[in-house]
């Protein structure tokens, strides 16, 4: 199965949840500031990549975990992916998870400022604040999501 975490941008909530899912971030312990800084750097570099599946890793059930930036088009992309899968007879199941409502508006603001190179120091501070506020919440959501995925259909 391909599990695709979809945010407004790929590198904020979507990547954070994907990384928690595969175990890059351990849900129980808060990551070091070096990790968070590296995450912020990826936001600076790849924050504006919309529509690209970013491969994050495999989980313990060998599901492929991806992050993707969908902008405002989550429902369109979800339907397009599902139906394209049928047209091309892709047998692998797809699971899209909409993160954009969970991540809040701050990543949009940070992304907007970063895209225009406005005050990167401020963006970094905002990012650290957002990360520390959302980390435990996302860890819980990912745990719940993993349990859902393991349930037999």
């Amino acid at each position: 199965m391909k599990v695709i975490y979809c945010g407004y941008r790929a590198t904020y909530g979507a990547y954070l949840m994907a990384a928690l899912h595969v175990g890059i971030y351990k849900g129980a312990q808060f990551p070091s500031s070096q990790f968070i800084k590296a995450h912020f750097d990826s936001c600076c570099l790849y924050g504006e990549q919309y529509g690209n599946l970013i491969y994050v890793g495999l989980d313990e059930s060998l599901n492929e975990i991806y992050a993707m930036g969908c902008n405002r088009f989550f429902s369109v992309i979800e339907k397009a992916h599902t139906n394209i899968g049928k047209i091309f007879k892709i047998e692998e199941e797809l699971c899209h998870i909409d993160v954009s409502r969970l991540e809040g508006l701050l990543p949009r603001l940070i992304g907007f400022l970063l895209a225009r190179n406005i005050n990167i120091k401020l963006c970094q501070k905002l990012f650290f604040w957002w990360f520390s506020r959302k980390y435990r919440f996302f860890a819980k959501v990912v745990e719940r999501q993993k349990r859902e995925l393991k349930k037999p259909k």
Binding site: G51, N52, F73
Partner: peptide
Amino acid sequence: GMKDGKSVVIPAIKSLLNASGI
């Protein structure tokens, strides 16, 4: 139909095909 999101939806479709080896 893809609203005004062709610059996002088309890469998303191509990306899926790519990841599926098509």
